[in-house]
Design a protein around this nucleic acid. Structure first.
Length: 913
RNA sequence: GCCGGAGUGGCGGAAUAGGCAGACGCGCACGACUCAAAAUCGUGUUCCCUACGGGAAUGAGGGUUCGAUUCCCUCCUUCGGCACCA
């Protein structure tokens, strides 16, 4: 209990700071299943092949340069810089390692040279690498670094592989925190947001990432939200947006509607501020996300982690069954119910309505009125106040009304109970106490009849009366269906269910039906700092969209910051007054704004052409870059953003705006960085790690390397401020390895073949690990190779061609991880052609990586007793002979013949004595 | 309760088409350099024992196998999601 409470508090604190930020932090580490991994490898394989072809042609940097009429940024680079001049200056000045001076210098140069601008190039395969955009809270924290730097490294790797890579960045700039802050201290959200963006942009740049800043998109800028509004109208015109009066979760503190996913915990508190949520009836805008429920359950063709797919599947929660019409005894009203077990219809001995069900008042007889009213009030309060224990006792009240069971004309009582939810199904159920645990408990308590309709084979009917029987059996007491076999399969797969559904449809009593837990997306927010909903209400013509040529509907700047429960836009004296698009008469604007998830549902499209003003994006850019090839971010968005953006893409596809079934082909989630105390980072705990401080102390390269090294990326781990010293040491040692003037030895024992072998083995491993997001082992492999190189240099490698090759390949492998030092050593110390970031990934030499001889452990009865060395090409028999010839083995054999000798895959010899 | 992850040295982690458990790094210990410290470099570092040898060990217990961290079964712990879903 205490633990739960603690967690709740954590969430609160984190959420307070900024929801999006907190979102990135509170990630759960979930490794993609081995299956998923395999898929990923396969998926990328064909593309990689295509690239390989290019890579194979030449190692010249020019292959990376896009061939285009317009001189691209990258192309222009080599002529601009006289790299050699810098070399001399640098070398003379100082060869001591000073990242604090070196890193900003390169960042500035790369920016000036437009090194990371992405321009359409039909001659190269494209790669759209996307990382979730931050909310501009005003401070970049270590969680952002953890999410973004490995994504950046991988984007850089892809680029070196010959892909034309787009890796953009922007800001999800609308949202509550800025408005709440405004209420507190009066600073306008716009001012604060754009100041924060300014600050965070600087912080982001200190990462040395290859973001294409010319493609930056900010969702709170009118050029952006004009198109958010435009999309709303598109969806409205498709019939996907509708208005509905509905009870919504409401935070009395934030004075705002909350989406279902923004209500947290057993006590149903506000995601942002922790206040217990209440219900409120409001007229709101919804998107028909449920229309796409079935399609959203289909993940064919996308390489997403199994966990995310499972989360989304459970969230949508499709169940198959039938809807059946019962009639009320008085008034003969139709009452539709949904059931997954139509085969148990004959066992329905009563009905239960949700207390909020619209027919309750009509059915209730005068003598039951008082009790029903009391229960309704109590039930309403229950959902507001803390929810009790999960398995709390069932309660309910008899309405006095009856319904007729359509399958057997039985007259059955209608009760109300809070275990029936108005928000699921139809808000009314048929109760089959014999075969449903809840109904059973309810029937027992209120002494309602229990009629078994499924009899387990070999057991008597009464055996079932002691508990709700759920299992295989034969239908009984079920009129025409007596004797029909049923099992526990769901839907049509169950022969009993299937037969009954057909019968119901034939009789016109009911029909096959599918029900979802998933609900339509409520997008109205009674707040100021969001994209206005571009709708106009006229007394005569009702709701109409703002004509497209009047977009964007801009936010007024002069508003009052009063938490009144109404949008500040409603209280603005003039803003809402406008003309009806149909008749021109005086009308009123919608004063609610949109959920910010609406903005983030399409930001990947705005990145394509953030300044484009003829549409949300430039078709040419779309056709080249989309879909997103790799999307990285926190798993906490599994049932929110990641579902919304899929819905959005599918809806726009049906509108002819986008193409293909899915917006993001491959998804990978990173874990969470915890504080050194193994707890979630939070200001109140004082365990927050500030990346700026680390960058000042160690330089960005070290922070990047450590972030990629210290944990399995998808798992996350607690921070260790001593551990980063290891990465700092690695970088310094690399620096020393490359910059120390070393004399070639005369008595050289250097083995060039061996060095090449290690270099190419590392290259194979690092390439594989970049592909599969295994960043920590990239760094450890590079560390190992560095240690090898130190040994080689000690043995006299300096000056040899193998040494030079090792240095070049080493820097290229390092470049995606630590772009600054790699550039510095490449351009200024090795005197190679600027920039290393325009080089192609080194080519793997299979022959060089091959071992001449292999060492095999020899197991005797499962224990390693000896090792033998054999030539790499030795056959099984040869290996066997060598193993049996070993003295140690002979000793264990004691002159006897072995029972069995197994040579396993040339990796081990196992002898059974 | 249901669904999905994860349990490996003092710590982060490495190794799974079943094949040398503990790569790499942190920390620690000792040594070199130093007047000294830091930095740097070198060596060692899973545990136990009667210690140039042997035994045990990947959350626990069982199974399959010549061989299991890896596969199967039953549990335990932990993290996350959902939770009266009809």
């Amino acid at each position: 209990m205490a633990v739960t409470k603690k967690n709740k508090t954590n969430k609160k604190v984190a959420a307070k700071k900024s929801p999006k930020t907190a979102a990135i932090k509170k990630t759960v580490a979930k490794a993609p299943s081995p299956k998923g991994k395999k898929v990923s490898v396969k998926k990328t394989a064909p593309k990689a092949k295509a690239v390989k072809a290019i890579v194979a042609v030449t190692e010249k940097p020019k292959a990376v340069v896009p061939v285009e009429k317009k001189p691209s940024a990258i192309q222009a680079v080599p002529e601009v810089i006289p790299a050699k001049v810098e070399v001399k200056e640098e070398k003379k000045k100082d060869i001591s390692f000073n990242p604090q001076a070196m890193e900003p210098r390169w960042q500035k140069k790369w920016e000036t040279d437009k090194l990371y601008r992405s321009v359409i190039d039909e001659n190269r395969p494209k790669h759209y690498a996307l990382t979730m955009l931050p909310y501009p809270s005003g401070d970049l924290h270590i969680g952002h670094w953890y999410a973004m730097t490995p994504s950046d490294a991988r984007a850089r790797f892809k680029r070196m592989q010959g892909y034309n890579v787009l890796f953009p960045m922007g800001f999800d700039a609308f949202g509550l925190p800025a408005e709440n802050a405004a209420i507190k201290d009066g600073v306008h959200p716009m001012k604060r947001t754009f100041q924060n963006i300014e600050k965070m942009r600087k912080q982001l740049k200190s990462m040395g990432a290859m973001f294409d800043w010319e493609r930056e998109a900010v969702s709170a800028s009118p050029e952006y939200y004009k198109w958010t509004e435009w999309f709303f109208i598109k969806l409205y015109k498709m019939g996907l947006a509708y208005r509905k009066m509905s009870p919504v979760d409401w935070c009395p503190n934030c004075n705002t509607t909350l989406a279902r996913e923004q209500v947290w915990g057993d006590d149903r508190h506000c995601e942002r501020c922790g206040t217990p949520v209440i219900k409120k009836d409001l007229d709101q805008w919804f998107f028909k996300t449920t229309k796409y429920a079935d399609e959203l359950l289909n993940f064919d063709g996308i390489d997403w982690p199994q966990t995310v797919k499972t989360l989304q599947t459970n969230w949508i929660d499709r169940s198959e069954g039938a809807s059946v019409i019962f009639k009320t005894e008085t008034g003969h009203r139709d009452v539709e119910i949904f059931t997954t077990r139509p085969d148990t219809l004959w066992g329905a001995t009563f009905m239960v309505f949700s207390p909020e069900h619209p027919l309750v008042d009509e059915i209730t007889t005068p003598e039951n009125k008082a009790a029903i009213e009391e229960y309704k009030i109590q039930a309403a309060r229950q959902s507001d106040i803390q929810r009790g224990a999960v398995d709390k006792e069932k309660t309910g009240v008899f309405t006095g009304g009856y319904a007729i069971n359509p399958v057997n004309q039985a007259r059955i009582p209608i009760w109300i109970a809070d275990y029936v939810l108005m928000s699921y199904g139809t808000g009314a159920i048929m109760a089959v106490p014999a075969h449903d645990e809840r109904d059973f408990a309810f029937a027992r308590k209120y002494e309602l009849p229990i009629v078994p309709v499924i009899q387990p084979e070999g057991q008597s009917e009464t055996a079932v009366l002691e508990f709700a029987y759920i299992g295989d059996g034969v239908m009984v007491n079920s009129g025409p269906f007596n004797g029909t076999k049923v099992n526990t399969e769901k839907g049509r797969k169950n022969p009993g269910i299937s037969k009954v559904i057909d019968w119901l449809q034939e009789k016109g009593i009911g029909k096959e039906s599918v029900n979802y837990r998933y609900r339509d997306w409520l997008i109205s927010r009674q707040r100021y700092w969001g994209a206005p909903i571009p709708m106009i209400h006229c007394e005569i013509h009702g709701w109409n969209p703002v004509p497209e040529d009047q977009l964007p509907v801009t936010l007024p700047e002069d508003v009052e910051w009063k938490p009144t429960g109404e949008s500040p836009l409603k209280l603005h004296p003039t803003w809402k007054n406008t003309a009806c698009p149909v008749c021109g008469g005086p009308s009123t604007r919608e004063t609610d704004t949109m959920d910010t998830f609406m903005c983030s549902s399409w930001y990947h499209l705005r990145y394509l052409s953030p300044k484009y003003d003829k549409g949300p994006f430039d078709d040419a850019e779309y056709n080249y870059w989309m879909p997103v090839d790799t999307y990285t971010g926190g798993i906490e968005h599994a049932t929110m953003h990641l579902l919304y953006t899929r819905f959005f893409h599918k809806a726009l596809r049906d509108a002819g705006i986008t193409e293909g079934g899915e917006p993001m082909v491959q998804l990978r989630n990173q874990g969470m960085v915890l504080g050194e105390d193994n707890e979630k980072m939070s200001k109140s705990r004082g365990n927050v790690i500030a990346p700026d401080v680390l960058v000042n102390k160690y330089g960005a390269d070290t922070v990047r390397a450590y972030i990629m090294f210290f944990a399995r990326w998808e798992m996350g781990a607690p921070w260790d401020s001593q551990g980063i010293e290891g990465s700092a040491r690695w970088i310094r040692r690399v620096w020393t390895l490359f910059t120390d003037p070393t004399q070639p030895k005369t008595d050289s024992t250097f083995d060039g073949r061996q060095l090449r072998r290690r270099v190419h083995q590392t290259l194979r491993k690092v390439t594989h690990d970049f592909e599969s997001f295994e960043f920590n082992t990239i760094i450890s492999s590079l560390m190992e190779l560095m240690n090898e190189m130190y040994k080689a240099r000690e043995a006299g490698a300096a000056g040899s061609p193998e040494w030079t090759e090792a240095q070049e390949i080493y820097l290229k492998m390092m470049a995606p991880v630590t772009p600054h030092i790699a550039e510095e050593l490449w351009t200024n110390h090795m005197g190679k052609k600027y920039s290393i970031h325009q080089q192609l990934w080194p080519q793997f030499d299979e022959a060089a990586a091959k071992e001449d001889s292999i060492e095999l452990p020899v197991q005797i009865n499962g224990k390693v007793r000896d090792r033998i060395t054999v030539p790499a090409e030795a056959g099984e028999e040869e290996i066997k002979a060598a193993a049996l010839a070993s003295e140690t083995v002979q000793k264990y054999l004691e002159g006897k013949a072995p029972k069995k000798v197994i040579v396993a895959n040339k990796r081990l010899v196992s002898i059974v004595v």
